[in-house]
Design a protein around this nucleic acid. Sequence first.
DNA 1: ATAGCAGATAAGAATTATTCTTGACTGGGA
DNA 2: TCCCAGTCAAGAATAATTCTTATCTGCTAT
Lengths: 140, 140
Amino acid sequence: MRLEAFVRASRNAGIKLTHQRLEIFREIAASSEHPDVDTVFRKVRGRIPTLALDTVYRTFAVLEREKVLARVSLFSDKARFDPNTEPHHHFVCTKCGLVRDFYSGQTEDFRIPESVKSWGAVDAVYIELRGICRACGGNL
Amino acid sequence: MRLEAFVRASRNAGIKLTHQRLEIFREIAASSEHPDVDTVFRKVRGRIPTLALDTVYRTFAVLEREKVLARVSLFSDKARFDPNTEPHHHFVCTKCGLVRDFYSGQTEDFRIPESVKSWGAVDAVYIELRGICRACGGNL
DNA sequence: ATAGCAGATAAGAATTATTCTTGACTGGGA
DNA sequence: TCCCAGTCAAGAATAATTCTTATCTGCTAT
């Protein structure tokens, strides 16, 4: 169960296990929909009426640093656009945010899992290779 | 050449081909680094000093709608977090934004292109299946 | 070539998401 | 129980994005 991992990670990292953090974690762990910060805030506030939105942000930041959870999508803050309209993929440096295009014929071979097929129709297979670019110390 | 596609698409869509739009498109088409809106704004402003930031946003919105370019990363505006720390992938509905997790053993088989290897070290293969969920009309 | 107009633009205000500041508070070790 | 580093709430501050309004301009029909 995820709650245990959370408790364990908190102790390891020397992070205080507060009521707020517990409820925030409970909320996001209970959902399979990756709710945004504000949604979590409103839900948890039902249980802790004095909760501040900033506490939700800070809690997520801490849990992300401790790898208890991960941010969905690396490119978060600023909008970026891609003039390349052919189907292609990206290599992304998780350190500096560098993005480079690459192509692969292998997407044809990808077998869509049955579970996914039952959720809807798949139009595109997008692959993101995440790593560290040379400038940041990858492949030295 | 991309500029032609842009000019063609503009005419097709009945969009006016203004000086500003041309320069904004030139700027992003010239770069392979998917610069953010503000970077494009500053560069183009060197050539058109009266350019407004909002024009860059509007131009990208129009070009995105006309499919002349695409937004890098679907989840743009709000931060979302994922309590699932095992390696996994996502099915994303491009209409309503629904996100569901799925697993696949096939990432092991993915051959990293040589070009990518030369850019840096790859740590993870993330796959995003994009389509339309049932609720939005997929798989009817 | 020119007029007229639908659509585009600049400028700055407004909105929305996120982070910072400050002073009060608390979990948990000594 | 005391202590204090770390945490919290509240609201201000920042940053990204969008909206409003008045002015202007590309383009089609003339």
